[in-house]
Deep mutational scan, measured.
Amino acid sequence: ERVRARYDYEAQNEDELSFKKGDIITVLEKDDGWWKGRNGKEGLFPSNYVEELE
């Protein structure tokens, strides 16, 4: 599954994923509120910062 970033997100910890608004992220795992994904790097990000691609 792929999602698009709705906002910029700056990683707060080294296991998190940074991205810019409009970036496409491949979702690897979904957990409550935090998803694991890849966009060149791999890490956790808040699920409310992304939207599913149509």
Score class of each variant (00 low, 15 high):
L17P: 01
R38S: 13
Y49I: 06
V50N: 01
W34E: 03
E1G: 10
P46Q: 07
T26C: 12
W34R: 07
G33K: 14
V3L: 06
I24W: 09
V50P: 01
I25D: 00
Y9P: 00
K30H: 04
I24P: 03
N39S: 09
D23C: 07
Y9R: 05
S18V: 02
T26W: 13
D32Y: 09
W35A: 03
E1K: 14
L53W: 12
V50H: 04
T26N: 07
E42W: 07
K20R: 12
K20E: 06
A5N: 03
D8S: 09
S47K: 10
E54I: 13
Y7T: 07
D31A: 15
Y49F: 13
K36F: 15
F19W: 00
N39F: 15
D8K: 03
T26D: 09
L28A: 04
L53A: 07
S18G: 06
N48S: 14
D32G: 15
R4Y: 07
L53T: 08
G37S: 00
N13Y: 08
K21R: 10
E42H: 06
W35G: 02
R4F: 08
K41N: 10
Y7I: 08
K21G: 06
E16K: 00
I24L: 09
N39W: 08
E10P: 04
S47H: 09
D8T: 08
D8I: 00
R2D: 11
G37A: 00
E42M: 10
G33F: 15
G37C: 02
I25L: 09
S18I: 01
N13L: 05
L28E: 03
V50E: 00
I25R: 02
L17C: 02
R38W: 15
I25P: 00
F45R: 03
N39L: 15
N48E: 14
I24F: 07
K20T: 09
F19L: 07
D8C: 09
N13T: 11
G22R: 00
L44A: 07
N39A: 11
R38I: 13
E16C: 06
L53G: 05
S18P: 04
K41M: 08
R38T: 13
N48V: 11
I25E: 03
E14I: 12
G22L: 04
L17M: 09
Y9M: 03
N48K: 12
S47Q: 09
E51T: 10
G40I: 12
E42V: 15
G43E: 00
G43W: 00
D31C: 15
N48Q: 14
R4E: 07
Y49G: 04
P46L: 07
K41A: 11
E14N: 11
L44H: 11
E1T: 13
L28C: 07
D32P: 07
V27M: 03
G43Y: 00
V50M: 06
D32S: 13
V27S: 03
A11Q: 06
L53F: 14
K30W: 06
V3N: 06
L28Y: 10
G43F: 00
F19P: 00
R38G: 06
G37Y: 00
E51Y: 08
S47G: 10
L28S: 04
G22P: 01
E52P: 15
R4W: 09
K20P: 02
G37L: 00
K20Q: 08
Y9I: 01
I25Q: 02
S47E: 08
F45N: 00
N48G: 12
F45Q: 00
Y9E: 01
V3S: 02
W35Q: 02
N39R: 10
E1C: 14
E29N: 10
V27G: 02
F19C: 00
P46G: 02
E52M: 12
R2Q: 15
I25N: 02
R6G: 05
V27H: 00
D15K: 15
L44P: 01
L28T: 09
E10V: 13
P46I: 03
D31I: 15
G22K: 02
K41R: 13
E52C: 11
Y9H: 06
A5L: 02
G43D: 01
Q12A: 10
N48C: 15
E29T: 11
R38P: 02
W34I: 08
D32I: 12
A5T: 04
L28Q: 04
E16M: 05
K36M: 09
L17T: 01
A11D: 01
I25K: 01
D32L: 11
V50C: 05
D31P: 08
K30A: 05
E16N: 03
F45M: 01
I24M: 08
R6L: 15
D8L: 01
F45V: 04
E10L: 11
K41E: 10
K41T: 11
R6Y: 05
G33S: 11
Q12C: 10
G33A: 11
E14L: 09
R4H: 07
F19G: 02
K36S: 06
W35S: 05
I25W: 00
E10W: 12
F45T: 04
S47I: 07
W35M: 08
A11I: 03
K41S: 12
Q12W: 05
D32R: 11
E29W: 15
L53Q: 06
E16L: 02
G33E: 12
G22S: 05
K21N: 04
L53S: 06
G22C: 07
A5R: 00
D15Y: 15
A11S: 06
E1N: 12
R4G: 04
K21F: 05
N39T: 12
L53N: 06
Y7L: 12
Y49R: 07
K41Q: 11
G33C: 14
K20A: 09
E52H: 12
K30Q: 08
E16D: 04
A5I: 02
W35F: 07
E52Y: 12
E42A: 09
E14M: 09
G33Y: 15
R38H: 13
G37N: 03
G37W: 00
K30N: 04
E54A: 12
Y9W: 06
K21V: 10
E16A: 02
R2N: 11
A11E: 05
D15W: 15
A5H: 01
V50L: 03
D23L: 01
G37R: 00
R38F: 15
K30P: 01
R6K: 15
K36W: 13
N13R: 11
A5Q: 02
A11H: 01
S18T: 11
E1L: 14
F45W: 01
E54F: 13
V3F: 13
A11V: 01
P46Y: 05
R6N: 07
K21L: 07
E42Q: 09
N39H: 14
E54T: 14
V3Y: 14
I24A: 04
E42T: 14
E29V: 11
Q12N: 09
G40D: 12
E10D: 14
Y7A: 11
E52L: 13
S18W: 03
L44G: 07
N13S: 13
S47V: 11
D15Q: 13
E54Q: 13
D8P: 08
E52W: 10
E1H: 15
L44I: 15
E16F: 06
W35V: 04
E52D: 13
K21E: 10
E16S: 03
V50T: 07
L28W: 05
F19T: 00
N39Y: 12
D8A: 06
F19D: 00
K36Q: 05
Q12D: 06
W34H: 05
E14R: 09
F45A: 00
L28M: 09
R38E: 10
S47M: 09
E29L: 12
N39D: 05
D15M: 14
G33I: 14
Y7D: 10
Y9N: 00
E14G: 11
Y49K: 07
G22T: 03
Y9Q: 01
E10Q: 13
Y9C: 05
D15T: 14
G33L: 13
K30I: 05
E54Y: 12
A11M: 05
G43T: 02
E16G: 07
E10N: 12
